[in-house]
């Protein structure tokens, strides 16, 4: 029942908007304005075909590899930087610099260095998505509770066990916030890297459609990207619920008191 209600809440507004869109464009003859009916059939024709394997799958694969690398790299270096204050002081100015550089401008650089390869695209995704994870991890590590830290010391929980049971877990709310940002940045950079120099992928295909005036197909590509975004956020919530269940429940209890 509550599941049905959740679904009802989630789909009502999109359905209303589609209805409004349909009514407004019912007599439209403008070539550039898509209509729901034709767009839907174009969507099915365009993406439920071999294009799924030639464009969607490669894009998502690069995205998955890039974001995974960014998360692993970000957490690992964030743990080191957050734990040792001298490393932090050493790295901080450089981190600020790299974080401030808008990742899309690195596409030409990587293009020169790595060529128009999958490696280049993955590198672009990593270079943008790593920062939110890294900086949030650093903050998370630094805000480990001092009493818990003392507790670990006095019970001789140190080294790997301390990282695993104390640092990583107490930083996990911040890390997850960083991962969430990394996902959306990664998606943006996936598209951008494919628009520059590519022969496959969603970004490439959407640009192709635009250049060949396949307006409905272009819009359908944008729809695909939006749906991927929704799916990612859904997956993220599933994972977050599992990883941070203690955190959300604890906060609910504290608020209730």
């Amino acid at each position: 029942m509550s599941l049905l209600r959740t679904i009802a809440y989630a789909v009502t507004l999109p359905l209303l908007l589609i209805l409004a869109w349909w009514l407004l464009t019912i007599n439209s003859t403008n070539f550039f304005v898509p209509r729901p009916g034709p767009l839907a059939s174009t969507f099915v024709d365009t993406w439920f075909s071999e294009r799924f394997t030639t464009d969607v799958v490669p894009s998502l694969t690069r995205f998955a590899i890039g974001v995974t690398l960014a998360i692993v790299l970000g957490i690992a270096s964030g743990l080191v930087i957050g734990t040792f204050s001298w490393v932090r002081r050493f790295c901080e100015p450089l981190l600020e610099f790299f974080r401030a550089v808008p990742p899309p401008v690195l596409v030409p650089v990587f293009l020169v260095v790595l060529g128009a390869s999958d490696t280049m695209k993955v590198a672009v995704i990593v270079s943008g998505a790593v920062w939110p994870v890294l900086l949030n991890t650093v903050e998370g590590v630094r805000s480990v509770d001092s009493v818990l830290s003392d507790t670990c010391r006095s019970y001789r929980v140190h080294g790997a066990a301390r990282f695993r049971h104390l640092v990583l877990r107490s930083a996990s709310p911040q890390i997850m916030a960083g991962v969430r940002q990394a996902l959306s940045i990664g998606l943006i950079l996936m598209v951008i890297s494919e628009m520059f120099a590519s022969s496959s992928g969603l970004g490439f295909t959407i640009i192709q459609f635009q250049r060949s005036f396949a307006v409905d197909a272009m819009w359908s590509g944008i729809l695909v990207l939006g749906l991927i975004g929704v799916l990612l956020s859904f997956l993220f919530h599933l994972v977050e619920r599992r990883v941070l269940s203690w955190y959300h429940s604890q906060r609910e209890v504290q608020r209730g008191r």
Partner: peptide
């Protein structure tokens, strides 16, 4: 420790 709430691991 005095601060029992802060000396236990909330995730355990």
């Amino acid at each position: 420790f005095q601060e029992y709430g802060r000396s236990l691991f909330a995730w355990m």
